[in-house]
């Protein structure tokens, strides 16, 4: 894609006056409209995030008097203190909190365990399978791979309830094992994603290592894994994001607050808030805490994620 750039530059430097003039005359209207659209689009995208921040830094009582203020109303860290359990009940109520507490620290921990555990297992299991499907030659390889890929056709809701019954029968509801296991070992997309990359790796290095007497298994971890660092990181990020944001499955499995992740806890906190005078500031503070790790990932790895979506689109 970047290779097209050098072709464009020389064309631009050749003076072709008539075309240039027409370009200068016509596009402004169209281009202005396009820019207005794009800026509007970006504003709609970003504004809700700003509004979370603005509300989370406001005093919940004062919000009622200045609902349209673009800046935080009576700037305070109170909402964060009360959702993180740092404020006393009296302090919370004085700032318009409901008195309902949310043990955000605990739920953060649960989300971290759930998302990290799932990510490590998915990446490891998919790495092994992808290696077998791309670098090894064995009978039935393509048939098995085809069967695995067919799982992409099955919507999540189809296996959700039977898997709940299974986890229930195993006595694993309200455990991290029950939360993580069903999604941890097999992920058709992940295997496909890594296999596509590994198919493109040169075989010479591996062949040389084999001749030098390095075992296949060692070769996988000493040579193939380092060469696949990029896709492995991308896959880990995508898996982590999905697990962090997951709601339906944890809602079924994690009824107990000891394993309940943030997404589910947010829903519970919202329902605990009184209907007459909801604690919007507290709710938005909790929302921001829940979204924060994703914002960090976005800042650190945004480009990588954007590129990976380009890949999945083109196949």
């Amino acid at each position: 894609m970047t290779s097209t750039l050098p072709q464009v530059t020389p064309a631009r430097s050749t003076p072709r006056t008539p075309e240039r003039r027409s370009q200068r005359r016509r596009p402004p209207i169209g281009k202005t409209v396009a820019w207005v659209y794009l800026i509007g689009f970006l504003a709609v995208t970003i504004f809700p995030f700003y509004w979370i921040l603005r509300t989370a830094l406001s005093n919940n009582y004062s919000l009622i008097d200045h609902p349209s203020s673009l800046l935080p109303v009576d700037l305070t860290l109170g909402p964060f203190e009360r959702v993180l359990g740092l404020a006393t009940r009296e302090q919370a109520v004085a700032q318009g909190g409901s008195g309902a507490t949310i043990q955000l620290g605990l739920y953060l921990r649960n989300s971290v365990i759930y998302a990290t555990g799932l990510t490590v297992l998915v990446v490891l299991s998919s790495l092994l399978a992808a290696y077998a499907f791309s670098r090894l030659h064995w009978r039935g390889r393509d048939v098995v791979f085809g069967i695995f890929l067919s799982a992409l056709m099955i919507p999540g809701i189809m296996t959700l309830l039977p898997n709940f019954v299974l986890i229930h029968d195993l006595g694993l509801t309200n455990t991290f094992a029950g939360l993580i296991l069903p999604g941890a070992l097999f992920s058709a997309f992940s295997i496909f994603f890594l296999r596509q990359f590994m198919l493109g790796l040169p075989t010479e290095i591996e062949d040389a290592a084999l001749i030098d007497g390095l075992g296949r298994f060692r070769l996988l971890f000493r040579i193939t894994v380092p060469m696949s660092q990029g896709p492995l990181t991308t896959l880990a990020l995508l898996t982590f994001i999905n697990a962090w944001n997951d709601y339906f499955w944890p809602l079924m499995i994690a009824g107990n607050s000891d394993v309940r992740p943030l997404t589910v806890a947010l829903g519970v906190f919202q329902q605990a808030s009184p209907q007459t005078q909801p604690d919007f500031a507290g709710l938005m503070a909790a929302t921001l805490v829940a979204a924060f790790p994703m914002l960090v990932i976005f800042i650190l790895f945004g480009r990588r994620i954007v590129d990976s979506i380009g890949f999945t689109g083109i196949r």
Binding site: F49, N245, T263, L266, L283, M284, A290, A291
Partner: peptide, 8 residues
């Protein structure tokens, strides 16, 4: 997450 989008 959808929960965050829904809440805001």
């Amino acid at each position: 997450s959808g929960v965050v989008a829904a809440l805001v």
